[in-house]
């Protein structure tokens, strides 16, 4: 039998590449996720110069000293959109299954911003400086997906 050299319709196959990482949070991010899960609250961390960083970090970017859980402070569940990008077609693993905005949100009391989804309904409803508030899922598990999304504040 001669080897087949015909060229037919291109073959295709699904190929899923998955890395099931589990990340140790450490005490500071652990507390951040615990507060979200148990209390529906956000906590940031205060640096040596008095800035509040949220999500919190382990090392003070101002002094380069280690920070501790003692430095953590509560911030608001509402805040301001500092920048955003409209996604006209949601990807399969996105937090929303309709068009939405990825936004940097500076929560009230924080000096830095958190990346999350804003469900504003349309691109026209989005603007830098708009106020948004967090909405949470019912069965919270202690990770970033406990935040369903942010929505425009009335």
């Amino acid at each position: 039998m001669a080897p087949d050299q015909t060229q037919e319709v291109a073959l295709r196959a699904d190929h899923k590449l998955e890395f099931p990482y589990v990340r140790a949070t450490g005490p500071i991010l652990g507390r951040f996720f615990t507060e979200i899960r148990d209390n529906g609250k956000f906590v940031g961390i205060k640096t040596s110069t008095g800035r509040v960083i949220c999500p919190p970090v382990d090392v003070d970017p101002d002094s380069l000293e280690d920070l501790s859980v003692e430095d953590m402070v509560e911030v608001g569940t509402s805040g301001v959109v500092t920048t955003w990008s409209w996604l006209s077609e949601a990807r399969p693993k996105n937090p929303l299954d309709k068009p939405f905005a990825w936004a940097l949100i500076q929560l009230d009391g924080a000096d830095t911003a958190l990346l999350h989804a804003v469900d504003a309904g349309s691109e026209e409803a989005m603007s830098t400086g708009m106020r948004v508030k967090a909405t949470f899922i019912d069965e919270r598990k202690g990770n970033i997906h406990d935040i369903a999304c942010f929505v425009p504040e009335d």
Binding site: A10, R12, H15, K16, E18, F19, P20, T34, P92
Partner: peptide, 16 residues
């Protein structure tokens, strides 16, 4: 308290 978070990375290829 939360000590770990699952952070899977998944890439879905359409292989030709």
């Amino acid at each position: 308290p939360v000590k770990y978070v699952n952070t899977p990375i998944c890439v879905d290829f359409d292989y030709t």
